[in-house]
Design a protein around this nucleic acid. Structure first.
Lengths: 206, 206
DNA sequence: CGTTTTTTGTGTGCATTTTCACAGAAAAAA
DNA sequence: TTTTTTCTGTGAAAATGCACACAAAAAACG
């Protein structure tokens, strides 16, 4: 079997397919087509079929896709069949909001450890988590086997904290700090920055 | 002058260039090159030059780019020379965190109105904003001339609230709800969903 | 002052991504 | 049963995006 590498741009669309399919599943929809799915998320039917064909044949001609089956398959492709532990680093307003967000648990992500460097915050509880001293990251993260971190610290310290996380064994970082992190290539970084998104949109407005 | 449309993917990179350049500016760096800028944000130098060349000639051979000048030019291109008013809709944990975030004001975005439909929340103050009844959106948003909204309501009501926003004259939505919004083509929507980003990353982990 | 170095802007071609369009399979209709 | 309709998976074509490489301009150097 030839397993050529799937383009990252394709991988990036899979979670959107999954999101829409899970929504259909909750609505009780049993079957869908590339056409219908495409209309739901604003992607062409051909694109969806091509993307999925990278991983196998999940549909049936004349019928389309079983929603439940395709959800299952996408979850397997995206490695969502086990629970992923997350470290939450930086317990300001945003860190607190994320700690309380139910969506993570609902999708198989569990915030297992929360860190901050502020002595005022260390020891406090947020959403069932005790905030720990960020100097303990190097010890605690490997102990719990955490591979993914969400970084919600001020931009001024984001780079150095990110390096500490990598040093502690973190392999993927969801970066909320408004700065480009410079890390080894094997570390996967995704950025969430509302300013960047707003500035993208203002280009098209008057 | 031929003004062919600039690809959206190029527009999407400009805010990242601007972010890095503003950082350099704060650091007191007067001049940079496409090479240096590229290394800072992980984009090839040729790519940056090609992107910028879509809008004009901002550099000088042998020297590179004046940081201050390029910041100015990018701000002008992205229409960031005036203050943009924002509506914040949905005052849960995330809405509250965004209301308190200083980054918007620092980049010329001003949250001018905050809405919720919960009688418990209406009338309360958050970060200097009085939370208003979301039934008033249709009246208040046009009155204040607000064009951009940040949507932080539960997924179950996001679509209908988004439609109300469009009806009230909103032209761009930064959508934090974990659902694809279905809106007229002329409305610009950007999504921020940590689950989607995490699922993208887990593909690459074991 | 001439030579070397730096660095831009861009033409060209390669690579990637998307769309098109159709054979074939399944289901629905007749 | 036969015909028509639906809808996938996929080669091929089209479109888009990116990297290379270089002339030309400016600066630095000696």
């Amino acid at each position: 079997m030839i397993t050529r590498t799937v383009p990252d741009i394709v991988v990036g669309r899979l979670p959107r397919y999954l999101q829409a399919l899970e929504h259909m599943h909750r609505e009780g929809i049993k079957t869908t087509s590339s056409q219908e799915l495409g209309e739901a998320i604003g992607i062409s039917a051909a694109q969806i079929r091509k993307d999925l064909s990278q991983f196998g044949e999940f549909g049936k001609q004349g019928t389309g896709y079983s929603v439940a089956y395709l959800v299952e398959q996408l979850q397997a492709i995206l490695k969502l069949t086990t629970i992923w532990d997350l470290a939450l680093v930086g317990m300001g307003d945003l860190g607190n909001a994320l700690a309380r967000y139910q969506g993570f648990a609902e999708h198989g992500f569990r915030i297992t450890a929360a860190f901050d460097n502020d002595p005022e915050k260390i020891g406090k509880e947020v959403a069932g988590l005790i905030i720990q001293d960020s100097r303990e990251m190097k010890r605690i993260i490997p102990q719990l086997g955490i591979k993914i971190a969400m970084l919600t610290v001020p931009a001024s310290v984001a780079q150095s904290v990110a390096e500490e996380l990598v040093d502690a064994g973190i392999r993927a970082i969801l970066n909320y700090a408004p700065i480009s992190l410079n890390l080894p290539n094997e570390i996967h970084v995704e950025n969430i920055d509302p300013i960047i998104k707003l500035q993208h949109m203002t280009y098209y407005l008057d």
